[in-house]
Design a protein around this nucleic acid. Sequence first.
DNA 1: CGTCCGGCTGAATACGTATGCATGGGTGCC
DNA 2: GGCACCCATGCATACGTATTCAGCCGGACG
Lengths: 343, 343
Amino acid sequence: MSKAKATSIDIAHLAGVSQATVSRALRGSPLVSQETRERIRAAAEQLNYKVDKNASNLRLQHSGTLALLLFEDPTTDGSNINPFFLSMLGSITRACAQLGYDLLVSFQQFSNDWHADYADSKKADGIILLGYGDYLAYRARLEKLVEIGTRFVRWGAVQPDQPGVSVGCDNFSGGQAVARHFIEQGCRRIAFLGDASSHYPEFFERYRGYAQALQQAGLEVDEALQVDAESTQLCGHTAMSELIAREVAFDAVFAASDLIAIGAMSALAEHGYKVPVDVPVAGFDDIPMARFASPPLTTVLQDTRSAGEVLVQNLLMMIRGEPAQSVMLPVKLMVRQSSVRPS
Amino acid sequence: MSKAKATSIDIAHLAGVSQATVSRALRGSPLVSQETRERIRAAAEQLNYKVDKNASNLRLQHSGTLALLLFEDPTTDGSNINPFFLSMLGSITRACAQLGYDLLVSFQQFSNDWHADYADSKKADGIILLGYGDYLAYRARLEKLVEIGTRFVRWGAVQPDQPGVSVGCDNFSGGQAVARHFIEQGCRRIAFLGDASSHYPEFFERYRGYAQALQQAGLEVDEALQVDAESTQLCGHTAMSELIAREVAFDAVFAASDLIAIGAMSALAEHGYKVPVDVPVAGFDDIPMARFASPPLTTVLQDTRSAGEVLVQNLLMMIRGEPAQSVMLPVKLMVRQSSVRPS
DNA sequence: CGTCCGGCTGAATACGTATGCATGGGTGCC
DNA sequence: GGCACCCATGCATACGTATTCAGCCGGACG
């Protein structure tokens, strides 16, 4: 039909008013009379007019958009995105839609430089940072963000000395719960699969919870029972194989994430171990796959739905200039077959 | 530090040049001397300057952004997003990043009105439509989009009379392959779980492929063996239970999607059927969960990676004004344990 | 009948960038 | 030495919208 898109001036001509009135009418200003408003609305519909967001955003100095930045360690195999973060993505999208914001999604995995630019270039009003990253490597950047006044929230371990606002689950309690669950069943040599250094604060918190539960039960925390692993099935498989190769005794496996746990279970199967009879296994995250693993995987549920809501709400508070605080969300142990020895 | 964000004029002052030169330098215009360019770059860095995308986009009349619109039938249980589309999301994001575009993501599931507005409001240069939707219900809207010149590509069944450009897998051949796989093993009463009406063209194509394979093998296509189901585990469970309740004989189950297959397998287990010994099962999509189902699920692989690339490339062609055509991608049968009877 | 006020509307401008056009200074060539 | 030419830069303007300010009209009130 019309080749060029209609502008508010076209609408103004058609409706016999000025451009200013068109703008006011379409934004719902009370200054416009009901009759004029209706005429303008009709004209706009007739020409398929839509407000030009670029012009509008430029004028208003905000974009009505949030950016979601998913960063994963580039060392991961790059194949598939961690399902846990996909769940988060879904809940964040939902929360954004409910609150009237659009969402820009970017995977650090796929691009080189930090798209924190999204906010600096006014393409987004704020940023959500998501990922099990090597936190220390990003710390300087977070501090830079704070310094130049970029609004952002981070999903991850909630620690007192962090720059900016974080939202995360209670990884410590989750780790504790898993360890206690094993201990109650009489396990005494519980392996931990996952990076236990402070570079990965979330895994580290899970490890600390695990270690404390062991100590409270009077059990030794044996370094030989801990194997580093990033959150992929492949790493889980490798780490489990490594543990078996060490030939140390173990009677339970706590994997720091579900993907690691699933990889570990496949390695156990290959080596002839039956789960849970020979060795019970538990993971962390409760990704959808966990329920359908064989056997169904015991894990720690992170409530992604409220996590997404809290992230977005906190970010919007910051954008509005209100003070926002870090939040730690509760977790829940989901006991399934993989961790329960038949009595 | 500085409260207000720096503009190109600030940079111009600091570098002792005009705003025009700043713009040219930062955009890499060959008109600017090397020395001046360097001075401007330094000034920009010093002030943490980033080009204001809103102003830039307004001036350039494009946004460097694509919108991904995921629409699923609102009748689904709304809990989790179909993992297959999440895979597509990942590959589309990757393709966008590689081609220098940002991606705006929206779930029709969560919002009421069509955000085709993204393109009309110039927030995006084009739209990617994704979803097993009731296609007929959207047809009028697609035609409207074509009419007003909105650039979009659609993931789904590729059919000759469709408005716009589509990219999809060869669902027909996939359905054929699954049916033949069962037939080769001597199955003669193969059930089909999934909507077989033309409202869901992708499922319908899979059904047509299945039906043709049966006929070519001289087998009857029995309507009693087909049960409607949308693509969720719950629907799969329900549909399978329904089939069992019908008390018709069946010796294989072809589910139109992996989620349906997984739901069906759980229903089979509840009724005491062993997969694959009593009844072999296959799905469609090859979502990550399929490999970890119990038993691992035979399914039809859709290559989401190239699908994402083709979608984005086609859309960019349209944006550049080049002609783009619908594309049908090949599929591949992934035989795993769920469909293979021990001989 | 004049004044004032309130309710609507229009004119003008700013948001920050990109670019066509004009300009200045330097260089080469005759 | 003068003229033409080119490279680098500055000036001015347009992109489309939202809002401030000013103006107009009609009615109410003194």
